[in-house]
């Protein structure tokens, strides 16, 4: 059975994929839908949804919430993807070394990994951004730094299990170099769990980014969902829409990514494939 058909067997994953596709579409066409700068004051402040030409209302300064959400989608997805890519690359590299070589390499790398894991990740992320000055780069770095240990542990486990498989031993016997064995022989065999974990990490990254922006630690020049919620916090009782719509956007996006990740897991993990 093809991968795509296995994926589609999981209905909720398909729903997730549709939601995600819509979010991506909005993010991609944000500059067409809302050509103006989302920070620009475009009308009367605190307009409820549907009034004064604001689909989702306007905030305390008269900025368009809908425009902010469309542009914010771009930022959220971008940060989620880049941060995850960085975290996965770092995690795969360290995990692969630890798992493949074992011994003291493993000991050292895993103790370092554990050190990172002992610090609560969100607080750690705040700390990093605070030290580095808030900017889009520092946010990405912070998210990557708190996310890689999980990948490293996963990849280490996979490599540990693979390195004593007979086909890997056969590669040693024909004189293949360690690097080549790791990249060409073992890595392709543990891609599925890495992809699944990575997809779920995108969701976590979006949440962390929103949290940081909410606390005012996001890039001040870039609109994001978390920033919008943070800005609307003070008027939550008088202008509910300022917080609510970006909040729903975060929830739906994270949910969609999680569903897609689940679907990928079901489609790629042969042991679960038979589950009915």
């Amino acid at each position: 059975m093809s991968f795509w058909r296995r994926f589609c067997r999981n209905r909720s994953a398909v729903v997730g994929l549709i939601i995600l596709a819509i979010v991506v579409l909005i993010a991609a066409s944000a500059h067409l839908l809302f050509p103006e700068d989302p920070f620009k004051l475009v009308g009367q402040s605190m307009s409820p949804p549907g009034e004064n030409g604001f689909l989702f209302g306007s905030d305390t300064l008269g900025r368009d919430v809908a425009a902010g959400m469309a542009h914010g989608a771009r930022v959220s997805l971008l940060i989620g993807l880049i941060a995850t890519t960085v975290a996965v690359s770092l995690g795969v590299l360290l995990g692969a070394f630890a798992g493949y070589f074992g011994g003291w390499v493993d000991d050292v790398l895993m103790r370092v990994t554990e050190m990172f894991q002992t610090i609560p990740s969100f607080i750690f992320a705040i700390l990093i951004v605070a030290i580095m000055k808030p900017s889009i780069n520092s946010v990405i770095i912070a998210i990557a730094v708190v996310s890689w240990p999980a990948v490293a542990r996963l990849v280490r486990g996979e490599f540990l299990a693979m390195r004593n498989r007979e086909f890997v031993q056969a590669c040693h016997i024909i004189g293949m170099s360690d690097w080549r064995i790791m990249v060409r022989e073992i890595l392709p065999n543990c891609l599925s769990p890495i992809i699944v974990t990575g997809s779920l990490m995108v969701a976590t990254a979006i949440l962390i980014e929103s949290g940081l922006a909410f606390l005012g630690l996001g890039d001040p020049n870039i609109i994001s969902w978390g920033f919008q919620i943070g800005a609307g916090r003070t008027v939550l009782r008088s202008a509910w829409w300022v917080c609510t719509f970006p909040g729903i956007a975060i929830m739906l996006t994270v949910l969609a990514i999680n569903l897609v990740g689940e679907g990928l897991n079901d489609a790629m993990n042969p042991r679960l494939r038979e589950r009915t």
């Binding site: 007979e166 086909f167 016997i173 024909i174 022989e185």
Partner: peptide, 24 residues
């Protein structure tokens, strides 16, 4: 320095399912 000797001594493994890389 072992490399030139590698080809001279080769091995056939026990488990036909584990001894070939499934992705190659």
């Amino acid at each position: 320095s072992m490399r030139p000797y590698r080809s001279k001594i080769q091995m056939v493994f026990q488990d036909p399912y584990a001894s070939l890389n499934p992705r190659a």
